[in-house]
Nucleic acid binder design. Structure first.
Length: 215
DNA sequence: CATGGGATTGACT
DNA sequence: GTCAATCCCATGC
């Protein structure tokens, strides 16, 4: 898949919906930057009403983008090292965004390998810091428009229709009870820890031992 | 102005 | 499993 079979860029209205709906709907969409692109297989939702969200503290220089209009990129530095990519959601004035946590690479794989220094396709974008490195996404894209900027989100060209599973968010210490992580079921491109796989029985269910009484 | 804490990753035991 | 790298910025004095 080297040629651009991408659908149209996603318009801002898509991102104005409740952030958990946007997070779920983004699984299967495409992120493109330069020659590189990938299908989103894992997201997380963040909202200013819960303390794991940067916007929980209110409007500050750091959270300015989060409170901005839907459809912007919110890119911030994590642990001093990694750039993490989010899509701003909900109407302007509400601090909410969807963290992009993993992609299935579909274009520019050689450029990704070069930037990551790795060969395995499954390892190129299987984490929020990994995918920004693979796509060459940096802090300079914070506040850019995902419909018209250098970094774009696209609808899937063919509807993937992959089932999406929800799980607890990764790497946070607050509001851990919320199941606001969304993963493409069974994808080998999601980050660790993997969500609980839909477990099919390894063997037939053990026979239920029920004392049988006569009568 | 000093401090501390991360929406992580890769190397190592 | 443990741990350090490294920077932005919120908070507190």
């Amino acid at each position: 898949m080297s040629r651009r079979g991408l659908g149209p860029p996603i318009e801002a209205g898509f991102f104005a919906a409740p952030v958990t709906e946007v997070a779920r709907a983004l699984v299967g969409c495409v992120v493109a930057h330069g020659e590189t692109a990938g299908v989103i297989v894992e997201t997380e939702a963040y909202h200013d009403s819960e303390p794991a969200c940067h916007a929980y503290v209110g409007l500050t220089p750091r959270t300015r983008t989060l409170f901005g209009p839907p459809g912007l990129a919110y890119v911030y530095r994590s642990y001093g090292i990694h750039a993490l990519l989010n899509a701003v959601a909900e109407p302007e004035g509400i601090g909410a965004a969807v963290l992009i946590r993993a992609l299935e690479p579909i274009s520019g794989v050689e450029a990704m390998r070069r930037r990551r220094g790795l060969a395995r396709v499954e390892a190129l974008c299987s984490g929020p810091g990994k995918l920004t490195q693979a796509l060459g996404v940096g802090l300079e894209l914070n506040g850019s428009d995902l419909a018209s900027g250098a970094l774009r989100f696209h609808s899937p060209s063919r509807s993937a229709g992959v089932p999406v599973v929800s799980a607890r968010r990764v790497g946070i210490t607050k509001a851990t009870e919320l199941r606001w992580r969304f993963c493409a079921a069974g994808s080998r491109f999601v980050s660790s820890p993997r969500p609980e796989p839909a477990r099919r029985p390894r063997r037939a269910a053990p026979p239920q031992v029920v004392p049988v009484r006569a009568g």
